[in-house]
Simulated scan of single mutants.
Amino acid sequence: MPTSYQAPMKGDDDKKSWVSQSKQTNMATEPGNVSKLLENKGDVIFSIRPDQTLHEAVIILKEKRVGALIVTDEAGELIGILSERDIVRKLAETPGQTLPQKVEDLMTKKVEVCAPDETLISVLARMTNGRFRHMPVKCDDKLCGIVTIGDVVHYRLNELEHEALQLKQMIVG
């Protein structure tokens, strides 16, 4: 499942294809929440330390093909988030001088987080209202995943497709 839009790259066609309808999704009745999304997506979190450079961050973003990195301290605690958008804005402000700068000087320090039991509609509303695309997930005050607006929209589209299929089946009989 893609975590954010990425331009097509060599070898992309080798990936598994995704199926939007399955017996499990067709039988679901309750609205999706963050934990259901993470069951399919996984709990991989790509992080960086605040004293690392933006150059190092750009390399990780490119290699991992993600749109944001979680900034953690030595104990693995969340202290910020750094997105592609943050870096692009800084590039415009300080052309030719951006990449040597430290992550801590650019990261967003006040990070919105969600819980596994939060509904995806609530997460989507918070992301839309806050104009951000990545949200860390905390379980018992520990990082346990990250969701993107793309993940949430994809999951919701599958839910809506399921609802439409159920209505069609009710009509047809």
Rank of each mutant, 00 (worst) to 15 (best):
I45H: 11
Q52K: 07
D105P: 05
T108W: 01
Q52N: 07
G32Q: 00
V66A: 04
T25G: 06
E93S: 10
S35Y: 07
V88S: 10
H55A: 07
Q97F: 12
V44R: 15
P116W: 00
K90S: 10
K90G: 05
G80M: 04
T119I: 01
E84S: 03
V123H: 00
G67N: 04
M107R: 02
G80Q: 03
L91P: 06
G96L: 06
P50M: 09
A92V: 13
S83I: 07
L106C: 14
E77R: 13
I70H: 01
I121K: 10
S83L: 08
V34I: 09
L37M: 11
V103M: 09
K23G: 12
M107W: 05
V58P: 04
L106F: 15
E63Y: 13
K36W: 14
T25N: 07
E118N: 10
K90Y: 13
P100Q: 13
S35V: 00
N40E: 11
E56A: 15
Q24I: 11
A68N: 00
A75V: 06
S122A: 13
D117Q: 06
R89F: 11
K109R: 14
T108C: 02
E39L: 02
A75K: 14
M27Y: 11
E84A: 02
M107K: 02
I79F: 11
A115G: 05
K23C: 08
E56I: 13
V88Q: 14
S83V: 09
K90D: 05
E56D: 14
M27S: 11
E63S: 13
Q101T: 12
I121W: 08
T53E: 04
A115H: 12
K102E: 03
V123D: 00
E93V: 03
P100C: 11
G67C: 05
D73Y: 14
V113Q: 02
L106K: 10
E118S: 05
P31Q: 07
E63D: 12
R49N: 15
L37K: 00
T94P: 09
T29Q: 14
Q101P: 03
E30I: 02
I59R: 15
T108D: 01
N40V: 05
T119F: 08
V44I: 15
P31G: 03
S35L: 10
M27V: 09
M27W: 10
N33E: 07
G80R: 00
